[in-house]
Design a protein around this nucleic acid. Structure first.
Lengths: 204, 204, 204, 204
DNA sequence: GATGAATGAGTTTTCATTCAT
DNA sequence: AATGAATGAAAACTCATTCAT
């Protein structure tokens, strides 16, 4: 049975499959038309079944949206994690992270676009709790750990050390957004180069 | 009568006033509720007149949206331009720009938020023409001029020089977005410091 | 403008008229098909305009429902009040009330039916506050006043005096419901006769 | 195979058991949420099996509804019959009936509530055949027999004799409904006392 | 110029019902 | 016998847009 909250392992094969189908189709459509233009009717139609199915597997549009967001966030995290593991130990961790992050954006442009748009939307719905702040706080925490592992923040004032993390994250996201709006004019590799040099040569 | 395209100068005083009223109210509401939650009914009600007026002065919601976007973009441009003029000549132009840009974000958080959201929306509507690419191309052009004035891109390969501009813009926007989602945790001044140091110490 | 709460006097003529139109049509349809079968679409169609109008004048179906209920309750109260005023002073007030109440039921069978059905529905929605208890408490209060004016409860124990009011109200409503389900087999006049005799000859 | 009409005796044990399970669960849910809020999905879930089963044992929701109604009606009849048998012969039969009826309401508040709600609903569905009229006709017939056994209607005009039955039934149902909507404010015992005195002291 | 009123297409959502397995 | 999955019709509700006055 569908819309109940249950762990992955409790789901039947078909349930997992259908959910994935719906989510994947929804992602495609949101990428193409934008979140508000992506109606559940269009998702159902594109996926080839009736509207009812969506409600069989998800409580409502909001739940579907949240799950899409979580999944994409997971994909991004998994991607960076996996990429970083492939690097040699003692290597430049931050470099690996930057490369992994931008690699994700390059390979999953629409997914990154959706993350940006859903971030805005979820934020509006949650007014106070500020959803995306949570996502960002998480992001920055990981980034701080990585930079510390490389000793990139040693000897910095707390204030500056914090800001450095924010700025590195900003470079990645800001670059991602420019890439979204105009991929042909943005040379991701060259930018990555600049970002890495900047971080490397940074002196407070 | 209103909705015909006409130059600023052809508009009567009252016409200009009404348009401003509508646009200002719309901005407030979009800032508060988000673009899709901001209905024309709510704009009219808040502004204190009937829904009809909006259609008298704007062809439809899309036209209103576009004008809001243009106006906010103008405000951002005007703000940086004005700030930079106040700086002494021969001064560090890029520094002035960065400060001005972040100053705008700090003082006009909601307006910056709207620019981000409308950017996404307008892009979706214009599919191919890629609206925000135009905005960004413009932005980067100005930034390039400024950096060149300071000699920041001398001796750089074309590819790197272009990327440098992209990355500087990215730092500003990326920082802005983090600031939007969580102003209390972002120390704009410290970040500005880091950004300026980074640019200053940058070595390709 | 429609759905805002406003006093009768603030409404324009057309607004009052439309609301009345909608409410009257809804009453007809609920009487004919029952509350849950009475869709807003059917109300709009029957009344001869689009669905949108209903939402222009009423926030949602619940608000419409509540207003219908209030109006019918008012009609019932007004009817009894008016009938009783026409009686001579010092007359038998309770008799006048019974006659008036049953007269309302006779003349407004469907309206009484709706009151019963909406009572059940509103009660279910308000779970704890128990809507119809409020209505009944009111009813019984008026009835108590009337009976006291006639001295019908003098010398009775408090417990019995209270119960007497409940029972009189019960006779009227219980009779109404039987009349609803089978008007041809119920001789309202004869029943009224019996009720009045019963009350008159009652001895604790 | 379930849904075919078959006499009680033709049903297997498990079949009877399942039907009872479904009906009992449905009664619980209708009592809690109201008839229209009681979806078959919720019944199935609460009872711990799949929606399909309901359709295996009942043709559709209407049939289930009707059977619930019949069962509750039977329970009410059985209760009064049983109560009355326990009374001594030659005793006051009407008194026993009133006590039994009110005892049922007291002990089965939700069931009585369902009887009232389903009565309304079934009536709406059967438009002309007027379902609940049938129920009431039956009720009144039994009541008439009981009153006659006590000689309560001797010497009355036919018209009055009929009305008396209606009014007694009305007192019971009307009291039940007030008790439903506000049990804490209704003293069933005191009311029963009043009803019995009223009937006893009644003089046409 | 401005307004209130009305529209209707489009969206989410609900649920009884069916059916292959 | 029973289940899970899927359907689709119908409901409430939203909102940009139009238009007579």
């Amino acid at each position: 049975m569908g819309a109940q909250k249950k762990s992955q392992s409790e789901m039947t094969f078909i349930e997992k499959h259908r959910r994935k189908q719906i989510i994947d189709t929804a992602i495609e459509i949101i990428a193409r038309d934008g979140y508000h233009q992506a109606t559940l009717a269009s998702v159902a139609k594109e996926a080839g079944f009736s509207k009812g199915v969506i409600f069989y597997y998800f409580k409502n549009k909001d739940e579907l949206t949240e799950q899409i967001n979580e999944i994409l966030l997971d994909e991004l995290r998994d991607h960076t994690r996996k990429c970083m593991k492939e690097e040699a130990p003692q290597a430049d961790n931050l470099k690996a992270y930057v490369e992994a992050y931008l690699d994700f954006i390059r390979k999953n442009r629409e997914k990154f676009a959706i993350l940006v748009e859903l971030g805005i939307n979820l934020n509006q719905k949650m007014q106070d709790q500020l959803f995306s702040s949570l996502v960002y706080i998480d992001c920055r925490k990981s980034l701080a750990v990585i930079m510390d592992r490389d000793g990139k923040r040693d000897n910095l004032e707390k204030k500056t050390a914090d800001a450095l993390v924010v700025v590195v994250q900003a470079m990645l996201d800001g670059l991602g957004i420019q890439y979204l709006s105009d991929p042909k004019n943005i040379d991701l590799d060259a930018c990555q180069q600049v970002i890495l040099s900047m971080i490397a040569s940074y002196q407070p």
